[in-house]
Design a protein around this nucleic acid. Structure first.
Lengths: 370, 370
DNA sequence: CTGAAAGCGCTAACAG
DNA sequence: CTGTTAGCGCTTTCAG
């Protein structure tokens, strides 16, 4: 996909803008100190809001910093400081994705969030690719060597107990995202996937659907557990619950498996076939939609479908998919914030839970009359 | 979408693996020097393959390095070295993407490639978000301050002439990806999008299509120009060219615009309506597919469609989309390699052109008989 | 071919 | 509340 153009101000194409003043703008902390008539240490303290500084001194230093456009050099800070101002985000080995290209949207969204927060706190983000448990040692080593200050550990890595236990044993700062079991991490970010899934199911029930399938769910994943629980909760809470027929179908979180499972589920005689299919992920839903097209089942009249995640895919499917948004960017932000707070000694424990919004599109409709 | 699980070796869940030896494994260059009986300087030279070292000394130092599992600390290198071992990849301001979530796959694929190469050369990658021309100064400043060594500048930033001119004027190391105009950069990575598009069109013609529309194309983008040129080349080279009816429809590279344009193009009377639509991007193709579904045009029997890019989306559409793969990961690798070579004084000029593979799926078929 | 000295820019630890 | 003194781990520069 072509990315959108950067806005180009008209008429400047032939004048490459020049830098403000000095040819090599490497303003150091000493330049600031000298110009402000204080010691470098005072400047350092002002930069980091640390220790007690007289308000006037502080204001003056701040002014000089702005005048000189001073920015501390992260390498120097990392080298001398107690911890590295770089946060690692632990992501599965990307080359595994490469062959199939099944989508990097979850990862990139997390990254954007983390980047956002880190930028404003003057931290950097490093992607740490993880292949298996042996990499845990590497993670620890990077912190001890002050290569990395702390980690963001999103699912699926956050489901890896060894990893969490080891990080914890070494007292590293790390925040898990969507961890299956949070007992091993003091900092955690979660999405309320259960409530959103329940609302989605509720919507199906409101539309009159009484034969509903739920497709998805490796049980070792928090997302699977929570989303399935939401589905069941909606059904069990319904006054009509005894007349609702539902089925749970296991499959991985991906398209191909969704297609296969979809074909199996939808090939049943029409009187038994579900009129609504709720999927663990949009990827699975895309597979089910493909299956329905292949079986010439009209959507949404003959079959309602919904998914979960709402990355780029959902609205590009036909019919456009009803789903719930996983707020991955916000989750990345929250996790980065937790790690930074921990490193700077501001908080030792914290759980952030974010809501998931419903996104209703054309893939659902009233249940067909039998 | 749920990411795939990291492989968890069985039976290790309750034994968090411990680090090899020392509690704080920060092996420094001095540790290596001492153990090897040489000076730190010699170790440094061995690490960087620089200067002339006696083969024996070299081998011995290398052995000790491996024994101690020594890894140089990037912050220290950046601080003392002539350039920073961090490469910046210039990407549009991600929060612009956030509202629409139209997909981050191109960016992430580039990133993966860059990461791959950087890791093996012991460089880091930093994402540099760019909003507009003012950020150019920031880019230059970061290099002068040794925050960043050099840049990868992929489209769309590589279409921004001011940016390129400024980087060049400051003699920074940077490699453009898919630049519209390469005169301002000595290092460039391109994909042969023209040939692939031509092959795609050829395929349509071979299938008997004689009324073909090409949808897409902001002319300031290299991808637009090259892909459209490929389309026209195929038609003009065809023996039947005088009986081929084609149309070029402009639109942005995205889904919504593709849908709108698709509706317009396909709403024509059937005798005039194209039997094949070739799209600038898979995103546009998804829009056209949605339009065709809405107009109840059967695919591929009544309409053949193809796109370009082959990220996650293409195979998840119904019908699965025929397209060409933009080798974004490879392009990211190639660009990173060029920048690293330039920084290390190995090459001053270089153009790498990568092929795009065709991916035939179910969205194309023989032209319907009129 | 190898080494010694000096310092990159910043902050910890300790003094005032 | 502020300053001084030492480095962090590596590479540059200049001598052997």
């Amino acid at each position: 996909m072509l990315a959108p153009c950067i806005r180009i101000p008209a008429g400047t194409v032939h004048d490459p803008p020049m830098l403000e003043k000095s040819p090599h703008s490497k303003v150091t902390i000493n330049d600031v100190a000298e110009k402000a008539g204080v010691s470098a240490m005072t400047v350092s303290r002002v930069m980091r809001n640390q220790g007690k500084i007289a308000p006037e001194t502080r204001a003056h230093v701040l002014k000089v910093i702005r005048q000189l456009n001073y920015e501390p050099l992260s390498s120097a800070r990392n080298l001398s400081g107690a911890y590295s101002r770089t946060i690692g985000i632990v992501i599965p080995y990307a080359n595994d994705f490469r062959e199939f290209r099944h989508g990097y949207e979850y990862e990139y969204a997390l990254l954007i969030g983390a980047l956002n927060v880190c930028k404003s706190h003057d931290f950097a983000v490093n992607i740490i690719e993880t292949r298996d448990s042996n990499d845990v040692n590497l993670l620890v080593k990077k912190v001890l060597a002050r290569q990395i200050g702390g980690y963001i550990v999103p699912a699926p890595a956050s489901e890896y107990l060894d990893l969490l236990k080891t990080l914890k044993a070494h007292k590293l700062a790390f925040s898990t995202i969507s961890a299956h079991d949070q007992t091993d991490s003091d900092l955690t970010v979660l999405a309320d996937e259960r409530t959103a899934t329940q609302a989605l199911t509720q919507k199906m029930l409101d539309l009159g659907h009484r034969r509903i399938a739920f497709i998805g769910g490796a049980p070792e994943r928090r997302a699977s557990v929570e989303r399935q629980a939401g589905f069941l909760a909606a059904i069990h809470a319904h006054p009509d619950r005894d007349r609702i027929v539902y089925a749970l179908h296991d499959c991985t979180a991906f398209f191909d498996d969704g297609l296969e499972t979809g074909l199996r589920v939808l090939s049943q005689p029409q009187s038994q076939r579900p009129t609504a299919v709720q999927c663990l992920t949009d990827d699975i839903a895309a597979g089910v939609i493909a299956a329905a097209h292949r079986l010439k089942i009209p959507m949404p009249e003959g079959l309602s479908i919904c998914g979960f995640d709402n990355f780029g895919l959902a609205r590009k499917l036909s019919p456009a998919l009803t789903t719930a948004s996983l707020p991955a960017e916000d989750m990345g932000e929250a996790a980065a914030l937790q790690v930074i707070d921990a490193l700077e000694g501001r908080a030792r424990q914290s759980v952030t839970t974010l809501p998931c919004k419903l996104v209703v599109r054309e893939s659902i409709a009233s249940a067909p009359l039998d």
